[in-house]
Design a protein around this nucleic acid. Structure first.
Length: 432
RNA sequence: GGAGAGAUGGUCGAGUUGGUUUAAGGCACCGGUCUUGAAAACCGGCGUGGGUUCGCGCCCACCGUGGGUUCGAAUCCCACUCUCUCCGCCA
């Protein structure tokens, strides 16, 4: 949510910055309703002041033996008028709130306007491997080496689900362990949050109401709407920890991370071209999160980006880092970097981490503040999140980038301790 | 799933036969006096959001959430959420 004062003071500027995000808006009617809203508040509060004053006087009049029936009748009318104005005000405020809820965040000054086509690669690590043989697709490798069972995964959950098995499951688990170990080294606190959340969580994150139908929803037979949903990313849980709280300045920054599977409907997605596990309904991810002081959040984002990059580099995989243009950042974010890993079979780079600074946008939605020592006033804090990392594209990248001519796969050194020290997997096993 | 108890400011906690309580009081915290310094004692301050004002200030709302009754609700009524206790269920 944006600061309404910003819209009141410089609506043209806000309009222009949102246009960079390809969001067209005109504040004329909004500001007219805002003025009307303030008139109504003035009117109804004056009536309430009168009511309060008279109500306090009534017991004294009674005590003095005066006849209060005329006063009571008059106050009845005042009460009815208050109710009428309060209803009108309530509807007006609902309209204004819905309008505000739909506005995306204002992009940071150094974020360029426009969509994907204006994204800029700012860092490249490694080069595409030169195989010297015809490389296989990760689905073929995974099936041949019995790392992933796609067929039975679909039997259990339908299209878009798979089963990690044997060394495949071990590699997956090794990746998660590797990420966790690195975050702990950097002093981040580990959390395991609920996977089933209430509506408010999606609202605070800025994902609802817009994306409410992109998540798996849970509903009871007798409920009109869903009561809970399954989280699409751990960010949705982590951003709600301190909802409606006021933290101490000394508590910041808070550096956290969580492992959860992520569940997404991905309805109407490009599943045909994204064969295998590039885009599934369930994937594993370790998510980093920071609650930061406003003046420190830019630096915090750089820290998160560097951490995510270091994880991929530790695996020795070729990737590129892109700074996203305004319209390619999600609605809540003022600045986003994506780490994209090289997938040889797709001849393309696919996202394995997205690192973003939401500024105070999510903090406003979730009423998350901190009290500064020097001023003693509550202020909105800043929230940042970064995948660290999502595994569902790392495993394909490992299988494809590290495949050897004999059909086996070389395991990155940092993972070997969770695989019995093995450097190579894929020494043929009997069919099961 | 059933029964009972409860939810009040940072925290503890009074108020719950509706009305001079503007939500008492303690603790914590902040400032001051005193002191060589500290402690103690004493004095003062001490919630959030909104409206209005150049400003001091004034006004409104908030006692788990949302409705209702009433001239007036922390207090009465209804629904819901959460916490605790006991019982049942538990692939």
């Amino acid at each position: 949510m944006l600061d309404i004062n910003l819209i009141r003071e410089k609506p043209e500027w806000v309009q222009e910055r949102l246009l960079a995000k390809e969001y067209e808006v005109d504040f004329t009617e909004f500001l007219e309703r805002d003025a009307r809203r303030r008139e109504l508040i003035f009117e109804v509060e004056n009536l309430k002041a009168e009511r309060n004053k008279t109500s306090a006087a009534i017991p004294q009049m009674k005590k003095a033996g005066e006849d209060v029936s005329a006063t009571l009748a008059r106050m009845k009318d005042v009460g009815d008028e208050i109710k009428r104005l309060d209803n009108e005000l309530g509807e007006l405020e609902k309209t204004q709130q819905d309008f505000m809820d739909a506005l995306p965040n204002i992009p940071a000054d150094d974020v360029v306007a426009g969509g994907k086509e204006n994204n800029k690669v700012v860092r490249v690590f490694g080069t595409p491997p030169d195989f010297g043989f015809k490389p296989s697709h990760h689905v073929d490798i995974a099936e041949r080496l019995q790392l992933i069972d796609y067929t039975r995964g679909a039997k259990l959950g339908g299209s878009g689900f798979w089963i990690y098995r044997g060394d495949g499951a071990l590699i997956e688990w090794a990746l998660l362990n590797y990420f966790i170990e690195e975050h702990l080294k950097d002093g981040y606190e580990m959390l395991l949050p609920p996977h089933i959340l209430n509506y408010e969580c999606g609202y605070t994150a800025g994902q609802f109401p817009k994306f409410r139908d992109d998540v798996f929803q849970l509903r009871n037979d007798d409920s009109e709407d869903f009561t809970h949903f399954i989280l699409p990313t751990a960010e949705t849980a982590l951003v709600n920890l301190f909802r409606d709280e006021i933290l101490d300045e000394a508590d910041l920054p808070k550096k956290l991370f969580a492992y959860t599977p992520c569940y997404r409907k991905e309805a109407g997605s490009y599943r045909a071209e994204e064969r295998g596990m590039i885009r599934g309904h369930q994937f594993n991810k370790v998510e980093m999160f920071q609650y930061a002081l406003p003046e420190k959040s830019d630096d915090a984002l750089e820290e998160l980006v560097d951490k995510a990059c270091a994880l991929v580099e530790g695996l020795g995989l070729h990737y590129r880092l892109s700074k996203l243009a305004a319209a390619d950042c999600s609605a809540s974010m003022r600045k986003t970097y994506d780490i994209e890993i090289w997938i040889p079979s797709m001849d393309d780079y696919k996202e394995v981490s997205s690192a973003s600074n939401a500024g105070d946008y999510q903090a406003r939605r979730g009423n998350m503040r901190f009290r500064r020592q020097s001023t003693n006033r509550p202020e909105f804090l800043h929230t940042l999140n970064a995948s660290g990392l999502a595994t569902s594209r790392i495993l394909p990248a490992i299988l494809e980038q590290n495949q050897l001519a004999d059909g086996t796969v070389r395991i990155p050194e940092v993972l070997r301790k969770w695989l019995g020290g093995r450097e190579i997997i894929g020494i043929p096993v009997k069919n099961r």
